[in-house]
Design a protein around this nucleic acid. Structure first.
Lengths: 232, 232
DNA sequence: TTCGAAAATTGATCCAGATCAATGAAGTTC
DNA sequence: GAACTTCATTGATCTGGATCAATTTTCGAA
């Protein structure tokens, strides 16, 4: 896909229809493009906070703690806008889970430009609050849940974000490995594997391939996730 | 303190100087005020997302998982603006840690109003990104750290937010109990207590009273927290 | 100043999930 | 299509922090 096509995808998703052509063009001239191969970490050591739009592919936002331990802070998919901090108490990097096409901006200039029109900042704010909400849910999962509850929460969340409805339930084609799932849920690959086996043997899921998971019973999975019952 | 005084505190902290008197007045007429006693949960069951400004006091944002387990998602202090969701996968409530005075708004109308001036939305966005950043750091702490690292991270973070420099180091007067610290770090009170004893016996902290903690050696605490070394 | 209740500390035991170890299943490359 | 290599599963053992159980301390109220 060419750069104009990719930028157009960004504009459609993020920039409200109503904005002026002038502002649209300024965003276009600020935008940079990078094609990342699976495993690449295109923004490490950039020295500046970046705003990254996932035009195609999926990524993980990884934080490095000491002793080489990694914690995945978020998974991101096509259409997501991710803020990648250059420096904090932990080092962050955005890593491609599959081949990706990314549009990115220096965060400071991006926000400065966004301020030209309130509706753009409002879109950003909306996205940021959504990210905050997801991160809060993750906090709960990591703080107070068992391995099975964590994995169930993860499967439900992935079902909502990238699941495809099919006759047997919801089909997932996960771009991340067992290790990634573990690094996201604060568990080891072995525990992930054991819990998948457990859920499979109880008939809640099927795992037809290494990266395919079929959610057969969302209601029960939701209960396993320790979520509050949502009133009908 | 009277309502106008409290609203003025909100306006000073959140509304940029440059906004028009008309917008200022609209915020004032949308604002509601509540005085919460220690332990109160003024927004449970409100049915709507709320934006809450802590004019005086400190609060905890608590999420309820099933089986009565609680996870504290964030602590908030004077001057903070907290978004309190009405419904999500978990039930949230904002609980006063001490007697508080709160200014609050229905979130939808608050954001609608904020959009009248880009600079206000930008302030909100800035606050939201700060909350996201804190929440991400919390995610790392809960996902990949030992009890001692969690507690050290907590003490460092509290030092930064409400610490007072004194001759021996940084003095903390914590408004939250050991239970709250545990519920925030995904640990039990017993573990918190044991780790405090450990840090005390190593001369990194002193605990002169139930709620007072003195950080004697921030550098070593930071290392214990498993943070990345920040270059000088 | 003493009393009572809540909060914190300390100790003993237990267990969910980590770690260590081996095997099995998919891709990949030549 | 055989040999690698990586990823996933399964099993055995270990351990950090939970749980259970007393004290002990703190601090507000009388």
């Amino acid at each position: 896909m060419t750069f104009p096509d990719l930028f157009e995808r960004f504009a459609t998703d993020i920039l409200p229809m109503s904005i002026s052509d002038a502002t649209h063009l300024k965003f276009q001239s600020l935008a940079r493009y990078v094609s990342a191969r699976c495993g690449d970490a295109p923004f490490t050591g950039s020295g500046h906070d970046q705003m990254v739009f996932i035009a195609r592919g999926s990524t993980k936002l990884v934080a490095q703690a000491s002793h080489g331990r990694e914690q995945i802070v978020a998974f991101n998919f096509e259409g997501d806008l991710v803020s990648v901090p250059a420096r904090a108490a932990h080092a962050y990097s955005l890593i491609a889970l599959v081949d990706c096409e990314l549009i990115y901006f220096p965060a400071d200039r991006f926000f400065q430009l966004a301020q030209e029109e309130a509706v753009i900042v409002a879109t950003m704010l909306d996205r940021a609050l959504q990210a905050l909400s997801r991160c809060r849910e993750k906090t709960i999962t990591l703080g107070r849940k068992t391995a099975q509850e964590r994995l169930s929460s993860f499967l439900i969340a992935m079902g909502d974000r990238i699941g495809v409805a099919c006759d047997k339930g919801v089909a997932l084609d996960l771009p991340m490995s067992r290790r990634d799932i573990g690094d996201s849920l604060g568990l080891t690959i072995e525990t992930i594997s054991r819990q998948l086996t457990e859920l499979r043997s109880e008939g809640l899921i099927e795992t037809p391939g290494r990266s395919q998971i079929l959610l057969l019973n969302r209601v029960e999975l939701n209960a396993r996730a320790g979520h509050m019952q949502v009133a009908a």
